[in-house]
Write a protein that binds this DNA or RNA. Sequence first.
DNA 1: CAACCCACCTGACTGC
DNA 2: TGCAGTCAGGTGGGTT
Length: 284
Amino acid sequence: MPSIPAMPELPEVETVRSGLLAALAGRRVQRVELYRPDLRWPIPTARVRGLAGRRLTGIARRSKYLILEFGGPSPPCALVHLGMSGRLFVTPLRGRAAPDRQQHEHWRLFFADRVLRYVDPRRFGVLDVVPKDRVSAHRLLAGLGREPLDDTFDGAWLFAATRLRTAPIKSFLMDGRRLVGVGNIYASEALFRAGIRPTRAAGRLTRAECDRLATAIQDTLRDALAAGGTTLRDYRRADEDLGSFQLDLGVYGRAREACRRCGTPVKRIVQLGRATFFCPGCQR
DNA sequence: CAACCCACCTGACTGC
DNA sequence: TGCAGTCAGGTGGGTT
């Protein structure tokens, strides 16, 4: 049964999506358990309980939101975000016995022989239920920017979108109204791969740099996705959380260590209150 | 608008 | 061991 890494950036969320889809698609919710009325925002408890009896028909993803789609009359969907510390996983039901509730476990969807569980210590996550035909207009989804793994994301778009922007390129990459799915780790990593300093004004990147950066973002996300798949396969045997992906990080978390490419010590700075890592030797 | 700051929470880790 | 302080992967809302 799939589980979830404790590092929910886009590749991790996508890994969760495909794992949950394989484990749960076509199955009917038999019972719902909700252990608190809110996470980051209030949970519409009646609508969540109304999922009982419905079949899970699909799971979509937009940015780092998972959209669990259900069948039946006026089909609803559940909007789920893992926040910083959320995990979703499936546990088999042995006979009638439900598993013990974990610390910080906030809700469960019971299916006939398995249960989908949500654990989130920091409670920055989201659970909402809305009619399926209105989900794209949901206030949390309506203003979101481009998906970096879509065909429409490329250097030409990045160049056009950054013109006249004075904010640092790293801040631009993490602004969900422009581009989604690039979190704090992958923003530093993609800029390292592209050889671009995170402090550069976005609007001053050249067209060639935008091409390199767009490619670097996609490569970084795809590599992490591939690593996620590996971890997920291992997980089936381990039945324990492996903790994190084995993606090699070029700069993230490596302050004062030698750059793997040029040997210059990696620097750590703070942008928008978040740690940024870069190599002063090979990022210009 | 654009850019930035802050809050929301708990847990892990560091240094005294 | 204990304890205080720091930091953490996200991101919407508020302020300048």
